[in-house]
């Protein structure tokens, strides 16, 4: 296994135990025998990573043109930062176009006239560092527009069944 290449999970062997899906991309951090320590990136919640031990048979190289300089920087940072040693991917509890409700009252939302109980629709299929875009934009009976589309912490909203 070339340590200076990205890798990809070949199967769903880590889905039940670690919530890491087939196709997840990451890096080898260290190797011993038939196992590797690897860091994987969560495509559904950008910024989320999982650090797990995988069998060499469960991964394949993921070919990307990465310069040596960049690869060294990445590996050094991963080691120095001791990135997020949790061994699972967080779950994004919403799909694109799900209807959601704001379940907290916070200044950062209130100053945009968005309050606890307001409903909106999730506009993307991914979150970034736990924030997802939700369209709270509302048209009233007089065709006037209010509220708007903002990024909201996924812990501050819940799914509304319609």
């Amino acid at each position: 296994m070339n340590f200076n290449k990205m890798i990809q999970l070949k199967n769903d062997n880590y889905l039940k135990s670690n919530n890491i899906y087939k196709g997840a991309i990451g890096f080898v951090i260290s190797s011993s025998g038939e196992y590797l320590d690897a860091l994987f990136y969560n495509d559904n919640i950008k910024g989320d990573t999982a650090y797990i031990q995988v069998k060499k048979d469960d991964i394949q190289p993921y070919d990307l043109p990465v310069s040596k300089e960049l690869m060294i920087y990445l590996k050094t940072q991963i080691k120095e930062n001791n990135l997020d040693r949790k061994n699972y991917f967080k779950t994004l509890p919403f799909k694109q176009y799900d209807m959601v409700k704001l379940i907290v009252e916070k200044d950062k939302y209130a100053k945009l006239n968005i309050h606890k109980g307001d409903t909106g629709v999730v506009m993307e299929d991914y979150a970034v560092h736990d924030y997802i875009l939700v369209d709270f934009g509302t048209i009233d009976g007089q065709m006037k527009y209010s509220k708007g589309c903002i990024s909201v912490n996924i812990k501050d909203i819940e799914l509304v069944n319609i």
């Binding site: 990136y41 990307l64 960049l70 990445l74 930062n81």
Partner: peptide, 14 residues
């Protein structure tokens, strides 16, 4: 590509 951007952004995040 996006995955490499993401890897570097995460490494830099701190």
């Amino acid at each position: 590509p996006e995955i490499l951007r993401e890897a570097i952004r995460i490494a830099m995040a701190i």
